[in-house]
Amino acid sequence: MAGGSSIDVLGQFELHPVLGGLGEALRFSQSPLYMLVAVCLVLAFLYFGMRPAAVVPGRFQAAAEVAYEFIRNMAVDTIGPEGAAFFPFIFTLFFFILAGNYIGLLPFSFTFTSHIAVTLALALLVFLLSVIVSLKVQGFRFFAHFMPAGASLALAPLLIPIEILSFLSRPVSLSIRLFANMVAGHVMFDIFASFVVMLAGFGVVGDVFAIGPIAINMALVALELLVGVLQAYVFAILTCIYLREAVAH
């Protein structure tokens, strides 16, 4: 973390192989490890929540059901009747990102959503899925989307490149939004945590002033809890919107 006068805020994003040589050979860093942890937590939440399978749910089961119904309603309301087919995918996406964002808030853990490789992979997955679904549902009419209906043909040379560009920028904006939010939040955590260590070097006065950065970090945790769920929601809802365009006839 803090090394002398300079603050290494990016060190927290470094990947290290787990399990020594085996991890290095398998390219298995703490990022996939925390993906596994996140996935297992979500599955455990659903498994233990739904184990009673009671008609009148307890708190835990009600939470699992709320998660299910929230994503299901989002998928069906946004995509339309075809949304039911995409619901497991949206659910997977939302909870993969949400669990990744939230696990990263625990001290000494790692936020895999702070890696552009991961978020870009997810965004490209969504992008490719929407393109494949579009081509399958709409066939060659898919390319008609690049010419807005009702626009005059004279504007076509201007509009078509813009539309293509905006279409291609979707995975970029989708991935960078999540990546940047997560990186910014964790850099802030690191900076204010470093101040605590640095102020501690100034003796009693520093100890008193160190309350400030700690308080700010506490507030930042609350903010990051909001950002974490918001970014997962934004990712999921944008995926739903792209898929709605894809299934529209």
């Binding site: 990947l15 390219r27 996939p32 993906m35 890696h115 490789a117 997810l122």
Partner: peptide, 16 residues
């Protein structure tokens, strides 16, 4: 390790 997490991520995401 940076590119490796994409491959591992794909496997884990698919399994999930």
């Amino acid at each position: 390790l940076v590119t490796g997490q994409v491959i591992w991520g794909a496997v884990i995401f698919l399994g999930f």
